[in-house]
Simulated scan of single mutants.
Amino acid sequence: MRWAFITDIHANRQAFEAVLADARAQGATRIALLGDFVGYGADPAWVMAQVMALAADGAIAIQGNHDEAVAHGSTPGMHPDARAVIDWTRAQLSEDQLRFLARLPLQAHGEPGNCLFVHANAFQPNGWEYVQGRAEAVKSLHASSARIQVCGHMHEPMLYHLSGTGKAGDFRPLAGVPMPLPGHRQWLAIPGSCGQPRDGNPAACYALLDPAKSDLDDARITFQRVAYDVEAACNALRATDLPTPIVERLARRLTLGE
Rank of each mutant, 00 (worst) to 15 (best):
S74G: 15
A49K: 14
W88A: 04
D67Q: 03
D87C: 09
D57I: 09
L54S: 03
W46K: 06
Q26K: 15
G58L: 06
M52K: 08
A21S: 15
N121K: 06
R24S: 13
P80M: 13
A18P: 08
R24V: 06
A21D: 15
T89L: 12
H79M: 14
R30I: 02
N12Y: 02
P112I: 10
C115A: 14
V51W: 02
A108I: 01
G41L: 00
A21P: 07
D43L: 03
F100Q: 05
I9A: 05
L20G: 02
A45W: 10
M78Q: 14
P80C: 10
I60F: 08
H109W: 12
A49M: 12
M52T: 07
A102P: 03
V85A: 08
R30V: 09
A53F: 03
Q97H: 11
L106Q: 09
Y40C: 11
Q92L: 12
L34V: 13
A18W: 10
I60E: 00
N114W: 11
G64I: 04
A49Y: 00
V85Y: 09
L106C: 09
M48Q: 10
H10R: 11
G35N: 09
A61H: 00
M48E: 04
V118I: 14
H66E: 02
I31D: 01
V38G: 07
A49H: 11
N12H: 10
G41Y: 00
A42H: 01
L33S: 04
Q50S: 10
A56T: 12
A42L: 05
N12I: 04
L101V: 11
R90V: 07
H119V: 04
P105M: 06
M52L: 03
Y40R: 03
P76S: 14
A53M: 08
V51A: 08
G41S: 11
A28I: 03
G27W: 05
I60N: 01
T29W: 04
G64T: 11
A108V: 05
G41W: 01
Q97P: 05
D67R: 09
T89F: 02
Q107N: 04
A42P: 11
Q14M: 05
C115R: 13
I31R: 12
A25I: 03
D22Y: 08
R99F: 07
E111A: 15
A84L: 14
A18L: 08
N65Q: 06
H79I: 07
I31N: 09
T75I: 15
A69D: 12
L93C: 10
L20P: 05
D67P: 05
F16K: 00
H10M: 08
M52C: 07
A120P: 02
M48T: 00
D36T: 09
R90Y: 04
R99D: 15
E17S: 12
A82T: 15
G73S: 07
I9H: 04
A71Q: 03
A61C: 08
L33T: 00
Q26G: 05
A42V: 06
L106A: 13
L54P: 03
W88I: 09
A71F: 10
